[in-house]
């Protein structure tokens, strides 16, 4: 069964596709938007903006460090630079530039990392951003968003442009199910409750939200009611939603397409421990690099499945 089928979701676009479309559509309204590309615009989908607004797009070549520095300079002239690359290359290759030219001076630069997680598939671990959220979250003042579907990605893109300050938007390569309707709410820093439940809360973001909904549907058949939160904003995390989940459901499972360290799991654990400590179980890629292979096979092998979420729910509710 495909992702989202169990919960009755219909197919949707990849979040990178939704981003590219949204960015282009915002170009007229926000003349300050400038795209800075490291020669992957056809992968990150900034290509559409660059075609529509050629005077507002710079392809600086395969030079991520300079790419981020140039964006910092443009931001200090009042531009809203959108810097897009693969999550791994943007965060890992240009980390010090993000720190010095964006985060430390608090420049209004929008960092967009596509091809996050292991679901990129065949290109293999060198291309897989599995530590990008941890890196982004560790930068002071950085807002970090991981949208779950095309609709929320479009809304997140608009919110990102309207937001004043440095931000990281994490996108994926494969098509994902559509979760939201066009009239749904998207507010930075506020989790969306997608499924009601009292026995456990599954907190997820990105690709894992659809699996969390599948897991909730499956658990319902087994007599367990699971709350599902789309925690699209990892930083600043919605502490109130985590506290409510902890208080009202007494157990939490966190599911993310990221390594075990420093991502959504860590953020939820900190938020819960500060307010209402409860048992938490984690579904993530662990403390390892993945490998080349087909995306579905990789998700299965590295533990990112509905079944793993269901198992984690049983584990955590038994504690």
């Amino acid at each position: 069964m495909g992702i989202g089928e169990k919960s009755g979701l219909s197919p949707g676009p990849a979040t990178r596709d939704a981003f590219g479309k949204a960015l282009e559509s915002l170009g007229e309204r926000f003349p300050e938007i400038v795209v800075v590309d490291g020669d992957v615009g056809n992968s990150t989908r900034t290509e559409a903006f660059a075609k529509a607004f050629p005077d507002r797009a710079f392809n600086v070549g395969i030079a991520e460090a300079n790419m981020v520095g140039v964006a910092g300079g443009l931001a200090s002239c009042g531009k809203i630079p959108v810097v897009a690359s693969f999550a791994a290359f943007l965060l890992c290759n240009a980390y010090d530039q993000i720190r010095m030219s964006v985060a430390f001076p608090s420049q209004n630069v929008k960092l967009v990392g596509s091809h996050s997680g292991i679901s990129i598939g065949e290109d293999g671990p060198s291309q897989m951003g599995i530590e990008d959220v941890a890196l982004a979250c560790s930068l002071a003042g950085m807002t970090v968003i991981v949208p779950a579907d095309g609709v929320s990605t479009a809304k997140a893109t608009e919110a990102m442009i309207e937001w004043d300050g440095p931000m990281y938007l994490r996108l994926g390569r494969p098509a994902v199910p559509q979760i939201y309707s066009e009239d749904s709410e998207f507010t930075i820093g506020r989790a969306n409750r997608l499924h009601e439940g009292d026995d456990v809360t599954i907190i997820a973001n990105g690709l894992m939200v659809a699996m969390a909904l599948d897991a909730a549907a499956e658990l319902e058949e087994r007599g367990l009611s699971a709350r599902v939160l789309d925690m699209h904003t990892v930083k600043p995390i919605d502490e109130q939603a985590v506290a409510e989940a902890a208080r009202e459901t007494r157990a939490i499972v966190v599911a993310e397409e990221h390594s075990a360290h420093g991502g959504l799991g860590s953020a939820v654990a900190v938020a819960a421990s500060k307010n209402v400590p409860v048992p938490i179980a984690y579904v993530n890629t662990g403390d390892t690099y993945a490998e080349s292979g087909d995306p579905d096979g990789l998700l299965e092998k590295y533990g990112l499945t509905t079944e793993r979420i269901v198992e984690a729910v049983h584990r955590v509710t038994a504690r």
Binding site: N66, G69, V70, G73, L74, S76, C77, P81, Q97, S101
Partner: peptide, 12 residues
């Protein structure tokens, strides 16, 4: 890092 920032400012 300064030259990249300066380049961004020059472009801006």
């Amino acid at each position: 890092q300064g030259l990249s920032i300066g380049l961004g400012q020059a472009l801006g």
